[in-house]
């Protein structure tokens, strides 16, 4: 990229989405730590926003996306409404899953977001199946499936990638490699050369990108998504990144070497990096600040809405279990 041909509009739209994700998660953290309104674990993607923003900008609502336990950013970037997302984190009836799923099962089918998952790697085979369904129905959408570096050590990674290759399915796998599996360095638990090498060995078209460079992610993902749309064959994107927070909001991450997170925050924060690019491209700082403020306002509002929202009706715990043999019908 040279600054003269830099796509300013795209840069602004990436920055805007990243600021929204960052602001959503900062509000979610406040809701958890300050307000004590988040009841279970939440996993923040602070520091990893460029991957969500750079990939999802190439999808339409009719494309499907499946996510992980660290799925707020993906869900927002896919177009979900932050008000209903925040209500879900707070367990309220207006939550996108009616308060039944919480952060780890966040989903918004109306925008093609087919669910985060509390089981590492489980979404990989499900996503392959969604792509299989698309192929059977003759639709022309595609599927994007996110997972972490740790997921490459579970069976569904092998079974799901193999499946996509064998059946020739329109799916982009995105491995967000933040180097940690919870509190363990993934490299210490992984034989061979890691997720990209494994994907390659299964015959998938595999590309690696600096996941903290929003423009690079957008370029690479754009090319791969076009390729998946055209060829109807799977592809694999390995994005290296770093989570600035703990594994969960209550994890102090003391297992990391001293200064590692601080160094990354100083030198490799994807938002700071994109801001610098935009400033070099000639944009005034106040215009970029305005995007940040807009994100903060939107998400502060989302938290306010969620804080005041109603709890789900007690009896709704018996809804949407099953039609046949529903707990509502069970006479005894």
């Amino acid at each position: 990229m040279t600054i003269s041909n830099y796509d300013i509009d795209r840069g602004l739209s990436l920055l805007s989405m990243m600021q929204r994700i960052r602001a959503f998660e900062e509000q979610a953290r406040l809701a958890a730590v300050r307000d004590k309104l988040v009841h279970g674990a939440i996993h923040l993607s602070i520091g990893q926003e460029a991957v969500a923003a750079g990939v999802m900008m190439h999808l339409t609502r009719k494309d499907y996306m499946l996510s992980t336990h660290r799925g707020h950013g993906h869900t927002l970037a896919k177009g979900a409404n932050p008000d209903t997302m925040m209500q879900e984190l707070l367990g309220r009836s207006g939550g996108c899953c009616s308060g039944k799923g919480g952060s780890m099962h966040i989903a918004d089918f109306s925008v093609g977001m087919l669910g985060a998952n509390g089981v590492v790697a489980a979404n990989i085979t499900i996503a392959a199946g969604a792509a299989h369904g698309i192929k059977l129905s003759g639709d022309n959408h595609i599927v994007v499936c996110f997972f972490g570096d740790g997921a490459a050590n579970r069976g569904p990674f092998l079974e799901g990638l193999n499946w996509a290759g064998v059946f020739g399915l329109p799916i982009l796998f995105v491995c967000e490699d933040n180097r940690y599996s919870a509190t363990t360095l993934t490299a210490e638990m992984t034989a061979g050369d890691g997720p990209a090498a494994r994907a390659q060995s299964l015959g998938l078209s595999t590309t690696t990108v600096d996941g903290n460079d929003a423009d690079a992610v957008a370029d690479t993902a754009g090319r791969l998504i076009t390729q998946v749309r055209d060829t109807r064959q799977p592809a694999f994107l390995h994005a290296s990144t770093y989570r600035l927070d703990g594994h969960t909001y209550f994890d102090p991450a003391s297992y990391r070497p001293d200064g590692e997170a601080q160094h990354s925050a100083r030198t490799n924060d994807p938002i700071t990096r994109l801001r610098e690019t935009l400033i070099t491209a000639g944009l005034p700082a106040h215009q970029l600040d305005a995007l940040k403020d807009a994100g903060n306002d939107e998400m502060t509002h989302a938290l306010a809405v969620a804080t005041d929202a109603a709890w789900p009706a007690d009896a709704s715990v018996f809804d949407d279990v099953q039609d046949i043999g529903s707990p509502r019908q069970d006479a005894y």
């Binding site: 085979t125 996503a127 069976g155 569904p156 799901g160 193999n162």
Partner: peptide, 25 residues
């Protein structure tokens, strides 16, 4: 396509079928 052989991947058979069910099959 409609009477499909699968790899010996029981987890994927179950779960890919589920993914395909979620999108309307």
């Amino acid at each position: 396509q409609r009477v499909s052989d699968a790899p010996i991947s029981e987890a994927a058979i179950m779960s890919a079928a589920f993914g395909a069910a979620m999108v309307g099959t």
